[in-house]
Amino acid sequence: MASIWRYILAGLGLAALLVGIVAVVYLRLPHSVSGPDLSRSKKTSNGLFVASFEPERGVVRQGELQSWLLTLKTAAGAPVEGAAITVSGGMPQHDHGLPTSPQATDYLGEGRYRIDGVKFTMGGWWQLHFAISAAAGSDTVVFNIVL
Protein backbone atom coordinates (compact mmCIF):
# COMPACT_ATOMS: atom_id res chain seq x y z
CA MET A 1 0.00 0.00 0.00
CA ALA A 2 2.70 2.38 1.05
CA SER A 3 4.44 2.03 -2.33
CA ILE A 4 1.27 3.02 -4.22
CA TRP A 5 1.16 6.23 -2.20
CA ARG A 6 4.75 6.86 -3.15
CA TYR A 7 3.86 6.47 -6.84
CA ILE A 8 0.94 8.86 -6.42
CA LEU A 9 3.17 11.34 -4.61
CA ALA A 10 5.83 11.13 -7.31
CA GLY A 11 3.16 11.50 -9.99
CA LEU A 12 1.80 14.57 -8.25
CA GLY A 13 5.31 15.98 -8.00
CA LEU A 14 5.92 15.49 -11.71
CA ALA A 15 2.55 17.02 -12.57
CA ALA A 16 3.29 20.02 -10.38
CA LEU A 17 6.68 20.39 -12.02
CA LEU A 18 5.10 20.28 -15.47
CA VAL A 19 2.51 22.91 -14.50
CA GLY A 20 5.31 25.05 -13.04
CA ILE A 21 7.41 24.83 -16.19
CA VAL A 22 4.47 25.63 -18.45
CA ALA A 23 3.52 28.59 -16.25
CA VAL A 24 7.04 30.01 -16.17
CA VAL A 25 7.50 29.56 -19.92
CA TYR A 26 4.15 31.22 -20.53
CA LEU A 27 4.96 34.16 -18.25
CA ARG A 28 8.27 34.68 -20.01
CA LEU A 29 6.77 34.71 -23.49
CA PRO A 30 6.43 38.19 -24.96
CA HIS A 31 2.66 38.29 -25.26
CA SER A 32 0.71 41.44 -25.94
CA VAL A 33 -1.28 42.62 -22.96
CA SER A 34 -4.50 44.28 -24.08
CA GLY A 35 -3.29 47.89 -23.86
CA PRO A 36 -4.36 51.14 -25.48
CA ASP A 37 -5.22 51.23 -29.17
CA LEU A 38 -1.94 52.12 -30.85
CA SER A 39 -3.23 52.65 -34.38
CA ARG A 40 -1.79 55.68 -36.13
CA SER A 41 -4.86 56.18 -38.31
CA LYS A 42 -8.45 56.25 -37.16
CA LYS A 43 -11.86 57.88 -37.45
CA THR A 44 -12.44 60.91 -35.24
CA SER A 45 -14.91 60.39 -32.36
CA ASN A 46 -18.00 61.46 -34.29
CA GLY A 47 -16.82 59.97 -37.55
CA LEU A 48 -16.43 63.36 -39.23
CA PHE A 49 -12.83 62.84 -40.32
CA VAL A 50 -10.21 60.16 -40.75
CA ALA A 51 -7.06 61.27 -38.93
CA SER A 52 -3.54 59.86 -39.25
CA PHE A 53 -0.70 60.81 -36.94
CA GLU A 54 2.94 59.97 -37.74
CA PRO A 55 6.32 61.33 -36.63
CA GLU A 56 7.57 63.54 -39.47
CA ARG A 57 10.99 61.84 -39.49
CA GLY A 58 9.56 58.36 -39.06
CA VAL A 59 10.97 57.55 -35.62
CA VAL A 60 9.89 58.53 -32.12
CA ARG A 61 12.81 59.53 -29.93
CA GLN A 62 12.36 59.97 -26.20
CA GLY A 63 13.45 63.36 -24.88
CA GLU A 64 13.67 65.08 -28.28
CA LEU A 65 11.49 67.90 -29.48
CA GLN A 66 9.95 66.46 -32.62
CA SER A 67 7.47 67.39 -35.30
CA TRP A 68 4.66 65.05 -36.28
CA LEU A 69 2.21 65.10 -39.18
CA LEU A 70 -1.52 65.01 -38.66
CA THR A 71 -3.29 64.12 -41.88
CA LEU A 72 -7.01 64.83 -42.07
CA LYS A 73 -9.38 63.39 -44.66
CA THR A 74 -13.15 63.44 -44.81
CA ALA A 75 -14.99 60.13 -44.50
CA ALA A 76 -15.17 60.21 -48.31
CA GLY A 77 -11.38 60.54 -48.53
CA ALA A 78 -11.09 64.21 -49.54
CA PRO A 79 -8.27 66.19 -47.83
CA VAL A 80 -9.47 68.56 -45.10
CA GLU A 81 -8.14 72.07 -45.66
CA GLY A 82 -8.09 75.11 -43.39
CA ALA A 83 -8.65 73.15 -40.18
CA ALA A 84 -8.10 74.80 -36.79
CA ILE A 85 -6.34 72.30 -34.56
CA THR A 86 -5.61 72.40 -30.85
CA VAL A 87 -3.44 69.82 -29.11
CA SER A 88 -3.45 68.61 -25.52
CA GLY A 89 -2.57 65.37 -23.77
CA GLY A 90 -0.49 63.71 -21.12
CA MET A 91 0.18 60.40 -19.42
CA PRO A 92 -3.07 58.85 -18.16
CA GLN A 93 -1.27 56.55 -15.72
CA HIS A 94 0.91 59.34 -14.28
CA ASP A 95 -1.74 62.05 -13.93
CA HIS A 96 0.35 64.64 -15.70
CA GLY A 97 0.02 66.58 -18.92
CA LEU A 98 2.45 67.11 -21.77
CA PRO A 99 5.89 68.59 -21.00
CA THR A 100 5.51 70.91 -24.00
CA SER A 101 2.66 72.71 -25.78
CA PRO A 102 2.59 71.25 -29.29
CA GLN A 103 0.96 73.37 -31.98
CA ALA A 104 -0.19 73.01 -35.56
CA THR A 105 2.45 75.21 -37.19
CA ASP A 106 2.14 74.63 -40.95
CA TYR A 107 -0.28 73.36 -43.53
CA LEU A 108 1.63 71.17 -45.97
CA GLY A 109 -1.18 70.48 -48.47
CA GLU A 110 -3.26 67.35 -49.09
CA GLY A 111 -4.79 67.52 -45.63
CA ARG A 112 -1.38 67.36 -43.88
CA TYR A 113 -0.70 69.56 -40.87
CA ARG A 114 2.66 69.82 -39.10
CA ILE A 115 2.28 69.41 -35.33
CA ASP A 116 5.52 70.79 -33.91
CA GLY A 117 6.85 70.82 -30.35
CA VAL A 118 5.97 67.22 -29.46
CA LYS A 119 8.21 65.77 -26.75
CA PHE A 120 7.95 62.57 -24.75
CA THR A 121 10.21 62.91 -21.75
CA MET A 122 9.66 59.47 -20.22
CA GLY A 123 8.80 55.91 -21.13
CA GLY A 124 5.18 54.75 -20.79
CA TRP A 125 1.74 55.47 -22.19
CA TRP A 126 1.15 58.92 -23.64
CA GLN A 127 -2.03 60.37 -25.16
CA LEU A 128 -2.40 63.21 -27.61
CA HIS A 129 -5.85 64.76 -27.96
CA PHE A 130 -6.71 66.80 -31.03
CA ALA A 131 -9.68 69.14 -31.30
CA ILE A 132 -10.31 69.75 -35.00
CA SER A 133 -12.52 72.42 -36.49
CA ALA A 134 -13.06 72.62 -40.25
CA ALA A 135 -15.79 73.48 -42.78
CA ALA A 136 -17.38 70.07 -42.23
CA GLY A 137 -17.68 70.68 -38.48
CA SER A 138 -15.79 70.01 -35.27
CA ASP A 139 -14.57 66.70 -33.95
CA THR A 140 -11.92 65.21 -31.70
CA VAL A 141 -9.51 62.32 -31.84
CA VAL A 142 -7.09 60.72 -29.39
CA PHE A 143 -3.88 58.94 -30.34
CA ASN A 144 -2.03 56.65 -27.94
CA ILE A 145 1.73 56.41 -28.06
CA VAL A 146 3.63 53.92 -25.92
CA LEU A 147 7.37 54.35 -25.45
Binding site: S3, R6, Y7, L9, A10, G13, L14, A16, L17, G20, I21, V24, V25, R28
Partner: peptide, 21 residues
Protein backbone atom coordinates in the same frame (compact mmCIF):
# COMPACT_ATOMS: atom_id res chain seq x y z
CA UNK B 1 10.92 4.23 -4.87
CA UNK B 2 12.65 6.68 -2.62
CA UNK B 3 15.04 7.20 -5.50
CA UNK B 4 12.23 8.23 -7.87
CA UNK B 5 10.99 10.79 -5.37
CA UNK B 6 14.41 12.31 -4.89
CA UNK B 7 15.05 12.36 -8.63
CA UNK B 8 11.79 14.21 -9.09
CA UNK B 9 12.75 16.72 -6.44
CA UNK B 10 16.18 17.25 -7.96
CA UNK B 11 14.66 17.74 -11.39
CA UNK B 12 12.19 20.23 -9.97
CA UNK B 13 14.95 22.16 -8.23
CA UNK B 14 17.12 22.22 -11.34
CA UNK B 15 14.24 23.43 -13.50
CA UNK B 16 13.34 26.14 -11.01
CA UNK B 17 16.94 27.29 -10.73
CA UNK B 18 17.21 27.43 -14.51
CA UNK B 19 13.94 29.25 -15.12
CA UNK B 20 13.79 31.32 -11.98
CA UNK B 21 17.14 32.91 -12.65
Amino acid sequence: MRRLTSVTCLLALAALALLGG
